[in-house]
């Protein structure tokens, strides 16, 4: 379908660990995925599953100490980012690969005008005069549909609303036309009507610019509405990967199925008032003392003895639908 030249990002067997005073955290454990031009890949999972550390690893921004990337490769447009020295990496960050964060207020410099922050980001990577960069900054603000961009460019972050700040962040992230944009819970801190605006904006811009997008989220609704492909992470491992349609039609991993069943739906008119939700029992495991077998086994209704003893391999269940579960074949029948 798509040839190799379309491949923007190729992550292979990425492993990132944290050395902490309570032991070794395997935050990202043997995770592989690819992103093509113009494609949206969603990484979904609950807190502590390693999705944010994965994002930071791509940018080589894992705080060291205590974190360290200990294995694998991150190939962006043919270059393995893990082999670059710091200066080479800085030239790529914000240029070929950009990131937007959950809380726009903390990622913007509070004492610097919005326009100036974009100008600075651009001039780091592009040989541009101040005037050209300024024009580009205003152009970017217009692109993210900030009304009166020339006036807004002169304002400070605190003068903008949460939604406007996230738009400004997106403008800054896209100013150098990166090949890959990583969005870590970009709408979690926003209200639902603003979330809809921002998601629509990100998708429009992606289509327009052909950027590859890695969208990190905990919200399956956001995944369904934005992504083409999804990987589900649990306790640092990729437990399932599929196209959005295949995943929502027939999840192969019991965890994915449990997650889908546990979210309340809107509108709930077809549900009797106060029907109990299907809950996943237990809590997310600590990353320090993971069981030898499948990390989800203690919470899994389908778990058998083998699940506790042996970690299941990622197997292809047809059409590139990968799942790491010994009982994936039975998941659909049981639940």
């Amino acid at each position: 379908m798509a040839d190799m030249s379309d491949l923007v990002l190729d992550v292979k067997n990425l492993r990132t660990v944290f050395f902490t005073n309570s032991g070794l955290f395997k935050a990202v454990d043997d995770v592989s995925f690819t992103v093509r031009r113009g494609e949206t890949l969603a990484i979904v999972g609950e807190s502590g599953c390693g999705k944010s550390v994965t994002a930071l690893s791509l940018l080589r921004l894992v705080p060291d100490p205590p974190g360290r990337i200990v294995g694998g490769s991150v190939t962006l447009e043919g270059t393995d980012l893990l082999t670059l020295d710091d200066a080479e990496m800085r030239a790529i960050r914000g240029n070929r690969i950009s990131m937007i964060f959950q809380e726009p207020m903390t990622s913007l410099n509070p004492v610097m005008r919005i326009g100036h922050q974009i100008v600075e980001a651009v001039r780091l990577h592009r040989n541009m005069s101040a005037k050209e960069a300024h024009d580009l900054a205003i152009e970017m603000l217009r692109l993210v549909r900030i009304p009166e961009p020339a006036r807004r460019a002169r304002e400070y972050p605190h003068q903008l609303s949460g939604g406007m700040r996230q738009r400004a962040m997106i403008a800054m992230a896209l100013a150098c036309r990166p090949a890959l944009l990583i969005a870590d819970e970009p709408t979690t801190a926003l209200d639902v009507t603003i979330q809809a605006q921002i998601l629509a904006l990100i998708l429009d811009l992606q289509k327009e610019l052909g950027t590859g997008l890695v969208l990190i989220t905990h919200d399956l609704g956001v995944v369904a509405q934005t992504a083409q492909r999804v990987i589900v992470m649990y306790a640092g491992k990729k437990v399932e990967e599929a196209s959005v349609e295949a995943l929502f039609a027939a999840p192969k991993h019991p965890y994915t199925r449990g997650l889908m069943a546990s979210i309340p739906a809107v509108p709930a008119s077809d549900v009797a008032p106060q029907a109990r939700l299907n809950e996943i029992p237990g809590t997310v495991p600590s990353l320090v003392r993971l069981p030898a077998g499948c990390a989800f086994a203690p919470r899994c209704k389908l778990a058998i003895k083998r699940c506790q003893e042996e970690y299941p391999p990622l197997a292809d269940w047809g059409g590139g639908h990968l799942a790491a579960c010994w009982r994936a074949a039975e998941v659909a029948e049981v639940a």
Binding site: Q195, A196, D219, G221, Q225, V244, M260, I263
Partner: peptide
């Protein structure tokens, strides 16, 4: 209308 629905 703004709530993302978990169905592609």
């Amino acid at each position: 209308a703004s709530v993302p629905i978990a169905n592609p």
